[in-house]
């Protein structure tokens, strides 16, 4: 089976689910109308449920965490319930085999009942046993990827209010701060000695990045540096749209300057091994390296209002 196509993955997933359902509906219709075989409601419902389970468990790569699959599966079950019970006719049809197993007096239902009476308690106790078995897995940690920043941060004796501060190195030709300068120069050559101040800042930021940051954050800025897998969680992947692209530049400035130890208490545990770079870099160097990271990933920093 072909894998997921880079860049189209969310849409592809939706299309695949749609395809499965279309096949399912068409199949049931053909069986019913053309061949006269009507699949019982209960079986239809069970098939949809299993198909959903199969899709999320085996089709999606890398594997989804259990918690997400559980949410999905509950949603699918609710959807199935809504579908089978939306009209009285279907609901009666759906219930019939279940009620028959509970109370009808044919030999078949008697046997099914007898088997269930044994299997249900056994599987319940099996689940209970499995749950109670001590496991060596690490406990789940609730990790907030982007903690709430302070209102202002003091770096090297200077106070930066995060809401209003601007990067002093994101400047256009006139030396003024510019939101759009990156877009215009995202394909420029940073090693061009005649380039504008902005590109020189990017280049210097790159130097700093490769002297300090790339060991962990990787030379593609994808969080897969030389030492990345020594950490848990692994370092932030800047190419992921969920990191730099979502954040204001000042937020990143706070995180770089204060590192793991500067994270707020309220959302412990953070488990970040990043050092507070203010102890090693000057304020301007921090701004430059952030400038480089945005330039390299081509994401503009988040802004709230124009």
């Amino acid at each position: 089976m072909p894998g997921f196509i880079e860049g189209m993955m969310p849409v592809q997933l939706l299309a695949e689910i749609l395809l499965i359902i279309v096949i399912f509906v068409l199949g049931a219709m053909i069986l019913d109308k053309k061949m006269g075989i009507r699949i019982p409601m209960l079986l239809q419902a069970a098939l949809v449920f299993i198909a959903g389970w199969w899709y999320y468990k085996f089709r999606i790569e890398p594997p989804l965490p259990f918690s997400v699959r559980a949410i999905y599966q509950v949603m699918i079950a609710i959807g199935i319930f809504m579908w089978v019970s939306s009209a009285e006719k279907g609901w009666t049809e759906f219930k019939r085999p279940i009620l028959a197993v509970l109370d009808a007096k044919t030999p078949l239902t008697w046997w099914v009942r007898a088997v269930l009476l044994v299997v249900l308690p056994l599987s319940a106790s099996g689940m209970a046993y499995k749950n109670l078995l001590p496991s060596l897995g690490e406990p789940i940690e609730l990790r907030t990827v982007h903690p709430a920043p302070p209102a202002a941060v003091t770096v090297h004796g200077k106070k930066f209010p995060l809401q209003t501060s601007e990067s002093p190195v994101r400047v256009d030709e006139s030396g003024e701060y510019s939101n759009h300068i990156q877009d215009a120069h995202v394909m420029d050559n940073p090693f061009d000695p005649d380039s504008i101040q902005y590109m020189q800042n990017v280049k210097e930021g790159g130097d700093i990045f490769f002297q300090n940051c790339h060991f962990c954050h990787g030379d593609n800025l994808n969080g897969r540096g030389l030492y990345a897998y020594a950490f848990n969680p692994i370092p932030a992947n800047f190419t992921d749209p969920g990191t730099l692209a979502q954040l204001q530049e000042t937020f990143v400035f706070w995180r770089v300057a204060k590192g793991g130890p500067g994270l707020p208490r309220e959302g412990f545990p953070w488990a970040s091994a990043m050092p507070p770079w203010e102890q090693h870099l000057t304020t301007e160097e921090i701004w430059k390296v952030i400038l480089f990271e945005y330039w390299h990933t081509k994401y503009p920093p988040r802004t709230w209002d124009e």
Binding site: P150, A151, A152, G157, K258, P261, G262, P264, T282, T283
Partner: peptide
């Protein structure tokens, strides 16, 4: 009020800058 998360007051005489 604004001291949150600032990592405490520096004990250094000078920042070096």
């Amino acid at each position: 009020a604004d001291g949150e998360g600032e990592g405490g007051e520096s004990q250094l005489y000078a920042t070096g800058d």
